[in-house]
Amino acid sequence: MKIFLLTHERELHRATNTGVLALDDANEIVERILWQRVNPNKDLVRLIDNNEAVLLYSKAESSSAVSPVKIEEYDNIIIIDSTWQEAKKIFNHSAYLKNAPQFTLKTVNNSLYKLRANQPKGGLCTIECIIEVLRLKGLNKMAAELSIKFEQFNG
């Protein structure tokens, strides 16, 4: 399994970026790809074109024509790693992402992340999404380890 963090360049310089926690501790599974509007990553485009990757994305932002998929059926998961406002822009300016099958996490709890403002209700930060994906994929030990790192980071 591979989780691709499609990262906005501004996130590389933010001390509040939670994707870095997974890159530090789960780098055999998590890979960062810098988002480029004009030159999309060819590997991601190929995975999407071959129906080999799913985009983890908010239902409110995705197309209503998208049929639900099971994340368990995919070995490649794409997560947009940025602020919520930037994620919406990335999605809107990336035609290839609109072609990707989409999966939305069904969360019952609000995000525990408190280092950034303007979190939408029900929205999770990047590391919380990664933790949930790992749990869905049965990688509970890694999910628990990242949860501890997140608690320390978020403290």
Rank of each mutant, 00 (worst) to 15 (best):
T107A: 12
T107E: 11
T107F: 02
V108A: 11
V108I: 12
V108T: 14
N109S: 09
N109V: 07
N110P: 00
S111M: 12
S111C: 14
S111A: 13
S111D: 13
S111T: 14
S111Q: 12
L112T: 15
L112H: 13
L112M: 14
Y113L: 00
Y113G: 08
K114C: 11
R116M: 07
R116T: 01
R116E: 01
R116V: 03
A117L: 09
A117H: 09
A117D: 10
A117I: 10
N118G: 11
N118Q: 10
Q119W: 03
Q119S: 11
Q119T: 13
P120L: 01
P120V: 01
P120T: 05
P120E: 09
K121Q: 11
K121C: 07
K121G: 06
G122S: 11
G122W: 05
G122K: 06
G123E: 06
G123M: 02
G123L: 04
G123F: 02
G123W: 08
L124A: 03
L124Y: 01
C125K: 06
C125L: 05
C125V: 09
C125T: 09
C125Y: 07
C125G: 08
T126M: 05
T126C: 03
I127N: 07
I127L: 10
I127G: 01
I127R: 08
I127H: 07
I127K: 09
E128T: 14
E128L: 14
E128A: 15
E128H: 14
I130W: 00
I130N: 01
I131V: 05
I131N: 04
I131A: 04
E132I: 00
E132Y: 02
E132T: 11
E132M: 09
V133F: 05
L134D: 01
L134I: 03
L134P: 05
L134H: 06
R135S: 12
R135H: 12
L136I: 13
L136Q: 12
L136H: 12
L136R: 11
L136P: 03
L136C: 12
K137W: 06
K137F: 01
G138H: 08
G138F: 08
G138E: 03
L139G: 10
L139V: 05
K141L: 14
K141G: 15
K141H: 14
K141T: 15
M142K: 07
M142Q: 08
A143P: 03
A143S: 10
A143H: 09
A144Q: 02
A144M: 07
E145V: 04
E145F: 06
E145H: 04
L146Y: 01
L146R: 06
L146W: 02
S147W: 00
S147V: 00
S147D: 12
I148F: 12
I148K: 13
I148G: 09
I148W: 10
I148C: 10
K149E: 02
F150S: 06
F150A: 08
F150H: 08
F150C: 04
F150Y: 11
F150N: 03
E151F: 05
